[in-house]
Amino acid sequence: MQPQRYWREIPQRYRLEAGRCRRCGKVFMPPRGLCDSCRSTEFETIRLADRGKVHTYTVIRVPPAGFAAQSPYVLAVVELDDGVRLTMQVADCGPDEVRVGLPVRVEFRKINEVGKSGVICYGYKVVPA
């Protein structure tokens, strides 16, 4: 991952900043330029809830490049308290501890490192609440 690509998403990855349609209120994560509900192009920036629950999950046992040290790890679609769903790791959670409906809260974690000399990528994960 080149730093510019990482950098561009920092508001979302560090602060869970989403876009809310000023006309119909629909929330988009990441923010986008056009609302698919009402076609409005006017948005305001909001911060997503930092608590939620596991909507569905898996345990990744064959990890992609850069994730070996964390493997096996729990990956989930988490439904935040404001209704927005995101794919994120459930950190500090063993394969036997996760279930649909598990209450979780967001924590700031290291997501990946680009080799030994590349940029360190941070972002959101959840932990059991």
């Binding site: 040290a69 964390q70 950190a91 924590e107 700031f108 974690r109 290291k110 360190i120 941070y122």
Partner: peptide
């Protein structure tokens, strides 16, 4: 620390 934790991540959590 878990493999996804370092001085920065722990600082952010404490700071929040």
């Amino acid at each position: 620390p878990a493999p996804d934790q370092d001085t920065i991540t722990m600082s952010v959590e404490a700071a929040r």
